[in-house]
Every structure is written in C-alpha cells, then in structure tokens.
Computed example of a mutant assay.
Amino acid sequence: MQYRKDRYGEPISLLGYGCMRFTKNGNSIDLDKAERELMLAIKSGVNYLDTAYIYPGSEVAVGEILHRNHCREEIRLATKLPQYYIKSGAAIEKYFNEQLTRLQTDYIDYYLMHMLTDVAAWEKLKKLGIEAWITQKKKEGKIRNIGFSFHGNTEMFIQILDAYDWDFCQIQYNYMDEHTQAGRTGLQEAAKRGIPVIIMEPLRGGKLVDLLPEKAKKRIAEDPKKRTPAELAFRWLWEQPEVTCVLSGMNSEEMIRENVRIASEVQTGEFTEEDFSLIEAVKKDIQDTLKVGCTGCGYCMPCPKGIDIPAAFRCYNHMYTEKKGAGRHEYLQTVCLQKDFRPVSACVECGKCESHCPQHLAIRQKLKEADGKLLPFYYKIGLKVVKKLGLFW
C-alpha cells in the first residue's frame, strides 16, 4: 500500500474503505462478512475508513469490528455530522456523542459536515455556534481533523473552501465528473490551499464498470495493457497528485485484493498519451448515448432566471445513460437543495443561453424536454416538505 499525507503530515492510504455498502442480510449488515473484508483491507494497509451517521447500521458495524479486533489505533476513522438535521447547538453535541457511542471510540480522526451543497448550510451552522464547538472538540482531542463532504457546483465548492480553515474535504470525482460538481478545478483549488482531498464515487457507484456502453467495454477490453474498467478509473484518479485518498465501497475479498494491488503499484505520471486518449474515447462513447450534447462548459451561464442549465442537462443525461432514478437523485442532491434553487420550468425562453453556447444547442427546447422528467410530482412534493422543514438551510 502507498500513502499520501494529510494536512499535518500523517499518512493516509491511497485506497480508503467506504463503509456505506457493506453486504446485508435482509435489513441488517452481515457483520461477519463485513469483518472479514474490513480486516483484510486493514491488514493490507488500508488505514482510512469512511462512514456516516445516516448510513444504516454502518457506524455500529464499524465500531464493533474495530472493538473486536483491537485495532482502533491502527486506522484513521472518518464519519459525518448530519448537518441537515441540526436545529440547535445542543443537537450538534447530541449527534456527535451518539456517534462516539456507536463507533465505540472517544475521538474521531476526520469529522465532516455531511453533504454541504450550499454555503448557506455552513452559515446556518455558524449561527448555531459550530465554530466554537469545533474549536473545543479539537482542543479536547475528540476531533483531530475537520472537513466537509460536498455535492454542488464548482463555484459553490470554492466558496465553502474559503468559508473556514478546513483540514480536508471530500468530493465526488471521476473521469466523467472531471468538469462537473467540484471537478478538476475544485480539486486543484483545494490543493492550492493545502487542503487534502478525499474522493468518493470514483466509479459513480459502479456505473463506470457495470453500465458502460458496450462500445466502451469493448474498447477497454482491447487495450494492450489489459486493465479492467475499474482499474482504469482508479489509475486515472491516482495519476493526479492532488488526490489524497480514493474511497471504494468494497464488498468482496476479491475486490479488496485487486484494489490494494492497484494502489500498491500506481505511480503519478505513469499515464501515457495513449492512456489519456483511451479515457477520452470512453468518455465519448458514454456521451454518445446522451440526450443533450452539453459539455458542461458553462458559457450559457448565468441564466437571468437563475436556472443551473449545465447541471440540469447533466442530470437529464444521467437519467438515460444510467437510470432515471439516478439522474433525478443527482438533480435533487446537487441542485434542488441549494437555497437559491430555480426549477427548469422558470425558463422564460429569452434565448441568452443559446447565443453563447459553443455547441449551438437548442437549449430552450431541451430544457422543455427536461422539465417534468427531472422533477416528477412526487419529487416536487418531497422537495416542498424538505424546504418547509428547513432541513438544509
């Protein structure tokens, strides 16, 4: 296993263990199987474990496995405050203490504000005293590093980066999200500030393996280096020195051994022109299945009515390149939960976007097509409930 450094020089394994996808028997985690797999990873050098309050059963399972095997000090434990549930300063303390109990520990190595989508969510926490609370917990040694996980656009990510003296952050990043969400720009901006970056969804929940177009699968299979789709995606990430650790939701011993092998062999700068060309060709194969040929360049922005046009098209495409529910969930999570969200239906067909589009897309027509697809009525009802309860702002 190879390691990169956190902000304070502590080693973090290139490969991290994402503990959201433990195998389940019915509604419960198969604890014995999870223990075998997690301990294989730890013994193979994986030292960064990622869980969260809202991952069903995960914190309890991780805590029990570490307790059984007396290896808490060997690993770096990361979990997340469910900031969207927080209504008071007392609630912050309540959730944190519950997490310590679940995890059978008295400190957290890497504590994240979970799923910040908008700087307004951080401002809400500040009003509730989160900064003083963090300072106290770090002083007590109960939190060693403070960070946030993010779903949103690049501009918002940079605003959040600059809103606090963060020790680390976590973003969704893979070769298909190179220029969406925080993206490569966000990754590099974090690096400029000396903030380590943990990567989630390196395979888009397996979609860059299982749901690749047949043409892309064939292209990868014919590559002389004989890398699997997963290996190609991981190596593309680790090629970038700004990437500190890549999380993988491993749920088989075979998967763990393979990912550990790659993380032990990979070297920054090993990608050749042919490798980058292969990635671009695979991306094109995926993009050829898209509903809208939007590259996410952002020339259409800002929309006078506040619609996030690139995000809408990205998620609309996801509905057809992956699954409808996946695209809708992406739209809800990365766009709709921002405080200043404006629905696609707000378009007044002014045409300003089309006059700046390098791809000469019929944006107004495509927005009409996307309207209703992205937010069916039951999503709209759920969104109204979330906003009424003020869960994110």
Results as ranks from 00 to 15, higher is better:
residue 169 C to D: 03
residue 33 K to I: 00
residue 367 L to F: 05
residue 272 T to P: 11
residue 255 M to G: 12
residue 71 C to W: 08
residue 12 I to G: 00
residue 233 A to P: 07
residue 216 A to G: 13
residue 154 T to W: 00
residue 54 I to R: 06
residue 15 L to R: 08
residue 269 G to P: 10
residue 340 D to G: 13
residue 328 R to N: 12
residue 138 K to H: 02
residue 112 L to F: 11
residue 190 A to I: 09
residue 209 V to K: 09
residue 284 K to C: 01
residue 182 A to N: 10
residue 303 C to P: 03
residue 114 H to M: 00
residue 304 P to Y: 06
residue 308 D to G: 05
residue 12 I to T: 02
residue 256 I to R: 02
residue 32 D to R: 15
residue 360 H to C: 10
residue 256 I to M: 06
residue 72 R to F: 15
residue 305 K to E: 15
residue 349 E to V: 03
residue 216 A to L: 04
residue 63 G to L: 03
residue 246 V to H: 09
residue 299 Y to P: 02
residue 295 T to L: 05
residue 264 S to A: 15
residue 381 I to Q: 10
residue 337 L to A: 04
residue 19 C to I: 01
residue 337 L to S: 05
residue 57 G to S: 03
residue 218 K to T: 10
residue 198 I to N: 12
residue 340 D to S: 15
residue 308 D to L: 00
residue 218 K to R: 14
residue 30 D to C: 07
residue 69 N to Y: 06
residue 112 L to T: 08
residue 237 L to S: 13
residue 17 Y to C: 06
residue 176 M to Q: 12
residue 327 G to R: 13
residue 250 M to S: 02
residue 79 T to V: 01
residue 249 G to F: 09
residue 281 A to P: 10
residue 30 D to N: 15
residue 228 T to R: 02
residue 216 A to D: 09
residue 104 Q to Y: 12
residue 12 I to H: 08
residue 14 L to T: 04
residue 270 E to Y: 08
residue 46 V to T: 01
residue 48 Y to A: 09
residue 107 Y to P: 10
residue 388 K to H: 12
residue 152 G to Q: 04
residue 110 Y to G: 03
residue 27 N to E: 13
residue 68 R to W: 13
residue 125 L to R: 00
residue 5 K to I: 06
residue 213 P to W: 03
residue 193 R to F: 06
residue 279 I to T: 04
residue 232 L to R: 04
residue 342 R to C: 14
residue 276 F to M: 11
residue 40 L to S: 12
residue 98 E to M: 15
residue 209 V to N: 14
residue 333 Q to S: 10
residue 244 T to Y: 11
residue 6 D to A: 07
residue 72 R to K: 06
residue 384 K to L: 13
residue 362 A to I: 05
residue 8 Y to P: 01
residue 348 V to N: 13
residue 36 R to G: 04
residue 299 Y to E: 03
residue 251 N to D: 11
